[in-house]
Amino acid sequence: MTNDYQRAGSLRTSGSGAPELRTPQKLMVFVLSMALFGLANIILEIIPDVTIGPVDISVAYFVFVPLAMVALFSPFWAALGAPLGEIVFVDLLMGDFSGLSEVEGYLQMFLALYIAGSLIRNPRSRTQIWLGAILVVVIDKFLSAIVDLAKVWLALEDPEYVEGLPESILFLEGIGFGVDIVMSGILFGAIPAMWLIPALHGKIEPLLGMRPRVPGEPIPGQAPRTGWFVAVAVLLSIAAAFFAFIEAWDLNVGEWEPDFLDQFGMNFLWVSVGAIVVVLGLAYLAYRAGRKRDGESQARLQAEADEAVALAERERREESIHS
């Protein structure tokens, strides 16, 4: 294999160099991610769920599909597209759109995928793929589990709560979380991804006119590891949780205690809505602030990147000599 990344000169434009995404490429990643995850979801929708006893042994989603997208392409655009695919193909099309909780689901899934995708530095590393797959499910499901557990907690506050329910919710929630990790995270996440991502690496990127990711090289559109991003992520998760709460609020407070609700119900709703607005506003401000400071770190990242590319290329050359 010859190496021609050094090529430069009196050209008018050059495709090699820092992997920067152009608008149509972002669009392609977004659309591809949306279409594939949408297809995966519609297949799951048609397959009936298996219920063993009270525990729903179902696959929440084919995690390996969006994981492959975020591992191979820009995590940001792939993570943005995938949950939209679910909404468009399944929720809107099948008329299964449940309003607020869709927003919650979108934010959770986006965060989970974005973070997992940014974590996978080397698409051929099995360890990183395993971590990524489990992380997606953990981030996504952990947030909803917190919401569900909070319901139980709220119900316990009330002495007249219904017999047997909190234990069952706690129990089922725990089992559900475990089942999700095993089914979605491992069986339909890590294991298929371990095979699929390396198999696609280097093959699918040229189809979209992109250069495959080189291990170690900075990923276009990856999650920056700076304080502001963590802040934005945390705030977004809180916002997502609040969306869920608006729905959950009704379940745990409203249903069991109509009197309480009559007094505080409406205010409760508005407090939640207000909280979402405030939190989203803070997230936006943190994002803006982070963007400004981004410039300085960019140069440092660039230097690191060049080094990594050179290293990776050297490895590749050596590999081809040996083989």
Binding site: S10, L11, R12, T13, S14, R22, P24
Partner: peptide, 21 residues
């Protein structure tokens, strides 16, 4: 090419007098 397909582009293409680059 070259606005959508980034790559090494040398020379010129004029369409109806407009330089595509």
């Amino acid at each position: 090419v070259p606005h959508y397909w980034s790559g090494d582009f040398a020379g010129s293409v004029h369409v109806d007098g407009v330089d595509t680059f």
